[in-house]
Write a protein that binds this DNA or RNA. Structure first.
Lengths: 204, 204
DNA sequence: GGGATAATTCACTGACTGTTGAATTACTTG
DNA sequence: CAAGTAATTCAACAGTCAGTGAATTATCCC
């Protein structure tokens, strides 16, 4: 047995050599773990382990689990105006399709962890619920619904939210097949007409 | 200060007088607390407190938190065939409306806690996820979709599930207005066409 | 280069969790 | 009515969690 070349490097104490940004690593690890376990289920130790640092770093950099959650999840890491632009770009006639395409594409990509973490944490974390409401309803869907000029924009916006939240739950949280594994080109013709009707069609 | 007539009666030890069924009280309390906090968030002590008994009763009657959850939530407390009958009763043409009406009416009534508890626990409890899949997809919506004789019954069933889960999340978990407070007669004309198209319409 | 400062790990604490066994009281059966 | 049994509470335990403070090491500035 040699001195200390095990699988666990038994990281030395003290400041590490420069070049490794633990703050960024913690945020990335937090997004992944919060997305997988939700706020309560995620432990600070698991996040720190994934980032390859000690759990005390969470306190040092973010003041605690709560602060890390606020930084990594509640602080929306994408440009909302860009999403609105992508949805409304082709006029009121194509909003349904653009919504499905935009959300599924982003969820499947790197930014998806943020949204899954938010949905998964809504159960236990009040601020997560507030952010979900704020982003999805008050900003995105309300703006889009008002852009169509239809009546009852508030009801239309929250109807859109039901379908999008349900799609996110089914596909990413519950893993309901075949929706969970379907590609975008299958989901668009299936779900886009729903959102289109919620925005510009007859709802009662 | 008198002897012992405080707000907390300081319940005496030992067997209580007959007539009070703590087993039933625990199941009812469990449904309420699991619905509000999910499996992980709910504590055995909180459930016992709501039922007005000691936490040790959970172990005595159900073998532990897990057993109580299985009894109160996983053991579906309603007749699935009755739901299917209520949905399919008026033929394939009215299934969309019947689904919305049946689910919202039951959720708003006493049986709602069961479903909310299930949805809220899906995040952390694997058995809850299995039960949700089993009941909603494999039993209810698959049967209904196959009854229509349409193509792709599997995809159609899971599409229905996305909309119903999203409605449940928005209305009961997230409390998204105005959907959260809307009455059934507002929701039916808005959402029924979506489910009707998922079951018998063009989905791609 | 040397002192101040920042970053990191470690060992620990206090709070809360589900669960257990003993003690206590009511009901049940002969 | 007496003995046995079932139900209930209480106190305590082990496990896990987030958070804290001291010790240790690299970097930065002069």
């Amino acid at each position: 047995m040699t001195t200390s070349n095990d699988a666990t490097p038994a990281r030395r104490r003290g400041r590490r050599p420069a070049g490794e940004d633990t703050r960024t690593a913690l945020v990335a690890a937090a997004r992944a773990v919060f997305a997988e376990s939700g706020y309560d289920g995620a432990t600070v130790r698991a996040i720190a382990a994934k980032a390859g640092v000690d759990a005390a770093m969470v306190n040092h950099w973010f003041g605690g689990k709560e602060g890390l959650f606020a930084q990594a999840i509640l602080n929306v890491p994408f440009d909302i105006r860009e999403v609105i632009e992508a949805v409304t770009r082709d006029g009121p006639h194509n909003m349904g399709e653009n919504i499905v395409r935009t959300f599924v594409t982003r969820w499947d990509g790197a930014g998806g962890e943020f949204f899954v973490a938010l949905i998964r944490s809504v159960t236990t974390h009040p601020e997560a619920l507030h952010t979900l409401k704020s982003v999805l309803i008050n900003r995105i869907f309300s703006t889009v619904a008002e852009a169509t000029g239809s009546d009852q924009p508030g009801l239309r916006a929250s109807l859109c939210a039901t379908q999008i939240i349900g799609l996110g739950m089914a596909r990413y949280v519950a893993g309901l097949e075949p929706v969970a594994s379907a590609d975008v080109e299958t989901l668009v013709p299936a779900i886009a007409p729903t959102l289109q009707r919620y925005l510009t069609g007859d709802i009662g």
